[in-house]
Computed example of a mutant assay.
Amino acid sequence: MNLKQLSKMLELSQTTVSRALNGYPEVSEETRRRVMDAAKRHGYRPNPSARRLATGKAGMIGYVLPTGAAVDIDPHFVEFLSGLGDYARGHELDLVLSPADAAEEETTYRRVVANKQVDALYISAPRRADRRIALVHQLGIPFIVHGRSEGLDFDYPFIDIDNEGAFHDATRLFVQLGHRRVGLINGDDTQTFAIFRERGVSRALASSGLALEPRHVRSAVMTEENGYRAARSLLETADAPTAIVCSSLHMSLGVVRAVRDLNLSIPGDVSLISHDDVFPWLKPENFPVPLSTTRSSIRAAGARVAERLAARISGLEDGARGEVWPVDLVVRGSIAGARQVV
């Protein structure tokens, strides 16, 4: 079915149908829904070249993909893309990945925007005063940041979870259970999510007159092996933490293995709370001891990024609105009162 046939069937002009399919704000929501339903029912897909000529839009969301081993194996990134792809597929959007190493990221952003390859970009894993955000803001293309940066002198649109609040609440629970030595196994501490998480742990401890000791903090790329090494190095010290907050369910797999290898137990010797990104294939309740978590769906975040990018492309959203999602604290069997130290 082509556009002319679809328009005739719906008794609408081709212009109205085209605008409904491409998200123009002057089309009513009722008409847009009617057109989208009919297009889906009859298998209509707009020709990309014709759409670009008619609307000036490519129907593409872009992402400049940092290259490197850590990115290739990161399951958080894959889960995020799954959510983004779920939304994009149902709304006639495609995703373009442009690989770039660290030295060529800026050049790649400029090329993608100059070539009009995409209608909008998203940026992930922001760092302090992130130059990518400043550049894309300057280039004038619609964009969304997944996460937040600090140290920029302008506002920008973003979606983030309350990392500081989540790790504050987890640590406060440990303190309420009598723990005085709390360890943190964090992600890459150059990224702002990890900075916020450490800040949350420190704030909760400070509220009770305690401190997050530097010797009780480990930071690394969030893999099982790094979780294992971090837990071993923390638990083999004389003043080992009696409770650990961990930044990733995958790192927690390593923590559990380290505890077992040291002939310790969870929660008898060490209590554990992990951040859980709600992976369908790795569930905290299936750990040897069901794992307490701070819970948020990264797949849902991917879908929301795509939804807001589609709105920005069509003109339904503008400005620099930020979203910060609350995080649930789910208590399971991996925490207990602090053991008595003689």
Rank of each mutant, 00 (worst) to 15 (best):
245 V>M: 12
245 V>W: 11
245 V>S: 14
246 C>Y: 04
246 C>T: 05
246 C>A: 10
246 C>F: 15
247 S>G: 10
247 S>L: 15
247 S>N: 01
247 S>F: 12
247 S>C: 09
248 S>N: 01
248 S>Q: 01
248 S>C: 14
248 S>H: 11
248 S>V: 11
248 S>G: 08
248 S>M: 06
248 S>K: 08
249 L>Q: 07
249 L>S: 15
249 L>W: 01
249 L>K: 10
250 H>Q: 05
250 H>V: 07
250 H>W: 06
250 H>Y: 06
250 H>L: 06
250 H>T: 13
251 M>P: 05
251 M>H: 03
251 M>G: 06
251 M>V: 12
251 M>R: 06
251 M>N: 04
252 S>A: 10
252 S>K: 11
252 S>P: 06
252 S>R: 03
252 S>G: 05
252 S>T: 15
252 S>W: 03
253 L>D: 10
253 L>H: 04
253 L>C: 05
253 L>W: 09
254 G>M: 03
254 G>W: 03
254 G>D: 07
255 V>W: 06
255 V>A: 07
255 V>Y: 13
255 V>P: 00
255 V>L: 13
255 V>S: 09
256 V>S: 12
256 V>W: 15
256 V>T: 13
256 V>Q: 07
256 V>F: 13
256 V>G: 03
256 V>K: 06
257 R>F: 10
257 R>Y: 13
257 R>E: 04
257 R>V: 02
257 R>N: 05
257 R>D: 04
257 R>L: 10
258 A>I: 04
258 A>K: 05
258 A>N: 00
258 A>F: 07
259 V>E: 08
259 V>G: 00
259 V>S: 04
259 V>T: 02
259 V>K: 00
260 R>F: 03
260 R>I: 03
261 D>M: 01
261 D>P: 02
261 D>E: 07
261 D>V: 07
261 D>L: 05
261 D>A: 00
261 D>C: 05
261 D>Q: 03
262 L>T: 09
262 L>I: 03
262 L>K: 01
262 L>S: 07
262 L>Q: 09
262 L>P: 14
263 N>A: 15
263 N>W: 01
263 N>F: 00
263 N>G: 11
264 L>Y: 08
264 L>K: 11
264 L>A: 09
264 L>W: 04
265 S>Y: 00
265 S>L: 08
265 S>G: 09
265 S>K: 12
265 S>F: 04
266 I>F: 10
266 I>T: 09
266 I>S: 07
266 I>G: 01
267 P>R: 14
267 P>E: 14
267 P>Q: 14
267 P>V: 14
267 P>H: 15
267 P>I: 15
267 P>D: 13
267 P>K: 12
268 G>D: 14
268 G>I: 15
268 G>E: 15
269 D>A: 14
269 D>G: 13
269 D>N: 13
269 D>F: 02
270 V>E: 14
271 S>I: 01
271 S>K: 13
271 S>M: 06
272 L>Q: 00
272 L>P: 00
272 L>S: 03
272 L>A: 10
272 L>D: 05
273 I>Y: 15
273 I>Q: 08
273 I>A: 09
273 I>C: 04
273 I>F: 08
273 I>H: 14
273 I>T: 02
274 S>R: 04
274 S>C: 02
274 S>L: 13
274 S>I: 09
274 S>M: 13
274 S>N: 03
274 S>K: 08
274 S>D: 13
274 S>T: 03
